[in-house]
């Protein structure tokens, strides 16, 4: 996501967040105004402020990766309030309580459900930590060539989908093809690590005493540097995470046709990078 797009999304979200209490309480003031002035207009029209406010709140809840079911269901209550008309005073009291509840739910949404999805998830571009990693290693990764990159995409997708046996098979064939072409060494190691661990995952076999890791010369292209004091289990996990991130990065950089498909997996890559 570009800086401009992020800023626009931030501004838009902030405006929408202000709109929730504004619309709600605007309805309240209109209701109070109509009630005190004894205007010919029906006081119940003031509920529309809360109705709009609840839709905005529901939208803000919807765009977050972690959904808040309470905020999402607020428009239903607004419609119910519209469908069951009360007398004028009760309508204004209901307006006040509902606008206050919507404001409280907005605060709860911000505090408990994190940043909006629009800021962390984009359907057309990679999110920031992945982008920086790709830019850092672009030159190395491009040398993999489109065929190896396409194989990398297949391995990554199958692994992410939980088809561990298929991922191990795809990694094995990718290694066989790479041996003929003698290309990128770190990618070869990444395939070997994924093959080994995917086979073990498929059989639900625990971590072995000895396992494959990246050699020291590959450290420059790895996303995560294992702590030298880390235990074997942590080193085993880090090796797989680095291998998967590297395979994804290679597929993204050198196989443009796979990018639309790979975009669906960026949440998983973000999780691996975390």
């Amino acid at each position: 996501m570009s800086v401009d797009t992020t800023k626009k999304a931030e501004t838009m979200n902030r405006m929408l967040e202000y709109a929730v209490p504004l619309l709600g309480f605007m309805g309240v003031f209109i209701g109070i105004g109509l009630l005190t002035l004894h205007a010919a207009i029906d006081v119940r029209i003031s509920i529309i402020g809360c109705l709009l406010s609840s839709f905005v709140l529901a939208y803000l809840a919807w765009i977050r990766p972690k959904k808040d079911i309470v905020a999402l269901s607020t428009p239903i209550y607004s419609i119910i309030f519209l469908g069951f008309p009360l007398d004028d005073v009760s309508t204004v009291v209901l307006d006040v309580l509902y606008a206050a509840s919507l404001t409280f739910l907005l605060v709860r949404l911000r505090n408990r459900f994190g940043a909006s999805g629009a800021l962390v998830k984009d359907k057309t571009e990679l999110a920031e930590p992945i982008k920086s990693y790709l830019e850092k290693n672009r030159e190395t990764l491009v040398s993999a060539g489109p065929e190896s990159a396409h194989s990398a995409a297949k391995v990554f997708v199958r692994f992410a989908q939980g088809d561990f046996l298929a991922a191990a098979g795809a990694a094995e064939s990718a290694i066989a093809r790479m041996n003929n072409a003698s290309t990128l060494c770190c990618l070869h190691n990444a395939f070997a690590i994924v093959q080994e661990q995917a086979e073990r995952l498929d059989k639900s076999v625990p971590q072995p005493e000895r396992f494959r890791t990246f050699p020291p010369e590959d450290v420059g292209v790895l996303a995560k540097i294992a702590d030298p004091k880390a235990n074997k289990a942590e080193m085993y996990d880090t090796a797989l995470e680095n291998a998967l991130i590297l395979i994804f990065a290679c597929a993204w950089t050198a196989s443009e046709k796979d990018r639309p498909h790979l975009l669906q997996f960026q949440t998983f890559v973000l999780k691996l990078l975390d």
Partner: peptide
């Protein structure tokens, strides 16, 4: 299949 929590992602729905 025995997996680590980190490997569980939305592409594994139904597994």
């Amino acid at each position: 299949k025995t997996v680590r929590v980190k490997l569980i992602n939305e592409n594994m729905i139904g597994k």
